[in-house]
Amino acid sequence: MLELLLSLLILAGAIFTFIGALGLARLPDFYTRLHAPTKATTLGVGSLLIASTIYFSTQGSGVSLHEILVTLFLFITAPVSAHLLAKAALHLKVPRVGQRAAPGDSPQ
């Protein structure tokens, strides 16, 4: 039962990490590619870390919760780096595909 749960969490984490990287390679322009890492971080690494917590907590050497720190750190930093990357791209006027023109075309 525990092994099944662990396997599911690990598989889900690996698949989401993979899909995030696939989006990075496959999507058409920078602004859509920007969505890939925030996704890989939140759900992919998140569920891997939950799996790690459960695994080490059931190994018999007491509860192990320090993986939560990595999750917390990634949840706090992922939006910040995405925001900065988007700002840099807007500043450099990275071209985009899309039907709609951006309202803030040259904000700087």
Partner: peptide
């Protein structure tokens, strides 16, 4: 709010006016 928008996949907040 901006961090929440970025964290939920599918939307990214780019710039505050």
């Amino acid at each position: 709010l901006a961090n929440t928008i970025s964290l939920t996949p599918g939307t990214v907040s780019l710039e505050l006016s």
